[in-house]
């Protein structure tokens, strides 16, 4: 996947490893908890960035895949006493299967049919979460979802969940970087370079678009399952259209064709309410403002900032020496 990404992963892992030290500072001790949500959100936005940046498609239904994972895990473990790990797998398979059904017809066509199909799909899932009361307890949601455990170790504490979530997120990051630096990733980028050349080189665009969509849905589902086992309680509003839109914002803010950017976007938007508490209900305006500023001043997203700074500084350094 290239040296730069390897070094990136190394430094990022060290950062994640050490971050909980901020928990010792009382004013920001709850940041570790927030970082769990950043990790969960990043699992979704990383997949979405591949979908948006490489496959050129928009999904307005990823909150629903997040919800499918959460509800599958929650219902199977809390109501049927099934072990959380097979329940998590069940969520993955369900989300992947649904993604194939929702995605295949629209991804074979050109244009943004996927955005419309996933919008409808997200709304339907949201209605199901609210209306199938016997299964989901409707708008009230339900609790008693057990924590995950492995070899007798229970992921109960914030710290344990923090490391679990980020270990999974980093594995997903590596998985996606591997894809990007493979024949599949090259095929996806070639479609942007020249669609007609990609076609005649035998790249079957719709096939890869579907695969990327399914993978991003499965990753969102894993995030949902981990969410359910951490919070131990789920209710529908977490998985609504607004969250799907926020996910898109995070990807755009981070820089669409970069999985690293997707993590940065997830972190920024997840922490923003924390920093904007004084705005109360007007935080949606702040989101809009941030999005607007970034689209205007950094059209390639926050992740392009270091490169821009670097390039603006290096000529000066050179002229000095």
């Amino acid at each position: 996947m290239g040296r730069r990404n390897l070094i990136g992963i190394l430094f990022f892992s060290i950062f994640i490893l050490l971050f909980p030290l901020v928990g010792r500072i009382s004013a920001v001790s709850h940041y570790v908890d927030i970082m769990i949500f950043v990790g969960l959100t990043a699992m979704i936005t990383m997949g979405l960035s591949l979908l948006m940046g490489y496959a050129g498609q928009i999904s307005l239904g990823h909150a629903a895949f997040y919800g499918l994972g959460a509800y599958t895990s929650g219902i199977l473990t809390a109501k049927y006493g099934i072990n959380p790990w097979p329940a998590l797998l069940a969520g993955i398979f369900l989300s992947a299967a649904v993604a194939v059904i929702v995605g295949s017809p629209s991804l074979k066509l050109r244009g943004h049919y996927l955005a419309m199909a996933t919008l409808a799909f997200g709304e339907i899932i949201y209605i199901i979460f609210n209306e199938t009361v016997s299964l989901t307890e409707g708008p009230d949601g339900f609790g008693n979802i057990p924590h995950l455990s492995i070899f007798g170790f229970k992921f109960e504490s914030i710290l344990a969940n923090y490391y679990l979530v980020w270990a999974v997120a980093i594995i997903m990051l590596i998985f996606l970087l591997n894809i990007i630096h493979s024949r599949v990733g090259r095929a996806l980028s070639s479609i942007h370079g020249s669609e007609i050349a990609a076609m005649t080189m035998g790249v079957n665009a719709s096939r890869y678009k579907i695969q990327v969509f399914v993978i991003s849905a499965a990753m969102a589902s894993v995030a949902g399952s981990l969410y359910a086992h951490y919070v131990q309680f789920i209710n529908p509003p977490v998985f609504d259209l607004f969250f799907s839109i926020k996910l898109l914002m995070m990807v755009i803010i981070g820089g669409m064709a970069s999985v690293w950017g997707a993590i940065i976007g997830a972190a920024l938007i997840t922490f923003l309410p924390e920093w904007l508490l004084f705005l109360e209900d007007f935080d949606i305006l702040a989101y809009g403002l941030v999005l607007l500023l970034i689209i205007i001043f950094l059209p390639k997203g926050l992740f392009s900032l270091p490169g821009i700074l670097y390039r603006s500084v290096t000529p000066r350094l050179k002229s000095r020496s």
Binding site: F175, L176, N178, I179, S182, R183, V184, G185, R186, A187, S190, A198, M201, G202, V203, Y208, Q211, V212, I215
Partner: peptide, 20 residues
């Protein structure tokens, strides 16, 4: 990389295989 795209049609590995 441009020439590597030329190999696309003669190679097979899918998204899971390359991801892992």
């Amino acid at each position: 990389q441009n020439v590597m795209i030329g190999r696309h049609i003669r190679t097979r590995k899918g998204v899971l295989s390359v991801g892992l």
